[in-house]
């Protein structure tokens, strides 16, 4: 259930479809050799980034993971500059220095994807500290996975945030596999959110493929943070549609029956949202949905074209930005 306006619901759906199609195109362009190195697809987890970011306002900050494209798009990053960065071009967000794992847009409060598991958790905690000292009610959201919840920065950071009542929301995207290590065998408690008890803060478990459930949980946690009541852990249960990375030379340990089950329409966050919207009269007529998909397709075609036309960075630029002048 949600009390979001129809416009906002359709906007959320559009963002989720944008993320899915962005990821599908990124995978395709990775296979064709236009994108280098490594790409981690967010396909299947769109409801979390969109559900949380829809609850944020300007001035709030987020930090992401190696699987970061979805968070960038959900926070409002420019698709052209994102695609150009994946292409390693001069007009990319990081001038071709970062690539898929390091897209950031500080102007919209997106503090960056991060190539180190758990690497962003303490940085976003510091952003929360800055927000608290600013005293303007802004919040900070750290996205991370079940794997990161087993690493030291999770504990150190959440302990400090809880002790200092920092306005931070820790969003664990539990896609049940840390690369090829199953959460069932590696997380000591049944749920990551259970650990919240150890910090004396709320730990909320939501269906991470239900965008409205995620959004409602985020609204509550953000309100709590803005009111000075401190951090919350939200654990969103989900599943990634793709293997850990798009590199086919790396194994995928997940059982195929498990993967297939999560690929069904009744589990897919986008299909579920469409179904929910279509159950309400006039909210999403077929023509509106088709139109929305066309708009997304055009935007992404434009992004690819922008990336293809952007030049590769000059060699000289390799030695620029080492230090701020």
């Amino acid at each position: 259930m949600t009390n979001l306006s129809p416009e906002r619901q359709r906007a959320m759906l559009r963002r989720m479809i944008t993320i899915r199609r962005f990821e599908e195109i990124a995978s395709e362009k990775f296979r064709s050799g236009d994108i280098y190195g490594v790409v981690h697809s967010y396909a299947g987890e769109e409801a979390i980034a969109v559900g949380v970011c829809e609850a944020l306002r300007d001035g709030d900050q987020i930090i992401s993971t190696h699987r970061g494209h979805g968070h960038c798009i959900a926070k409002g990053a420019d698709l052209n500059r994102m695609m150009a960065e994946l292409y390693g071009r001069a007009d990319g967000y990081c001038k071709g220095k970062g690539g898929s794992m390091h897209i950031a847009d500080f102007s919209i409060g997106m503090l960056g994807a991060n190539g180190i598991v758990a690497g962003g958790i303490s940085i976003i905690t510091g952003a929360g500290l800055a927000a608290q000292m600013d005293g303007n009610g802004a919040v900070a959201v750290g996205f991370f996975g079940d794997g990161a919840s087993n690493a030291g920065p999770f504990h150190e950071s959440i302990n400090i945030a809880a002790a200092w009542k920092l306005p931070v929301i820790y969003v664990c995207e539990n896609n049940q596999w840390a690369v090829n290590v199953p959460a069932l065998e590696s997380v000591a408690t049944p749920n990551v959110a259970d650990r919240a008890k150890g910090y004396g803060i709320p730990g909320i478990i939501v269906d991470g493929n239900d965008v409205f459930a995620v959004h409602n949980a985020a609204v509550d946690a953000i309100a709590r943070a803005r009111a000075g009541q401190g951090p919350t852990i939200i654990e969103a249960k989900t599943y990634r549609h793709r293997r850990h990375t798009e590199r086919l030379d790396q194994p995928d340990a997940r059982p195929s029956e498990e993967v297939n089950a999560w690929l069904q329409e009744d589990k897919d966050p986008i299909q579920r949202m469409i179904t929910t919207l279509q159950m309400q009269e006039d909210l999403l007529p077929p023509t509106v949905l088709e139109n929305l998909k066309t708009v997304v397709e055009n935007e992404l075609a434009e992004a690819v074209s922008f990336a293809e036309k952007s030049p590769f960075p000059t060699k000289e630029s390799a030695l620029q930005d080492v230090f701020a002048e």
Binding site: S122, T125, G128, A130, M133
Partner: peptide, 28 residues
Amino acid sequence: FPRVRQTPIAESALTGMAIGAAAGGYRP
């Protein structure tokens, strides 16, 4: 307080927090 803070013994978190606070316009 709050400009001079006694902290938990958590060098990793404090180091990362300095980065996040610096991104937010502070000079930690």
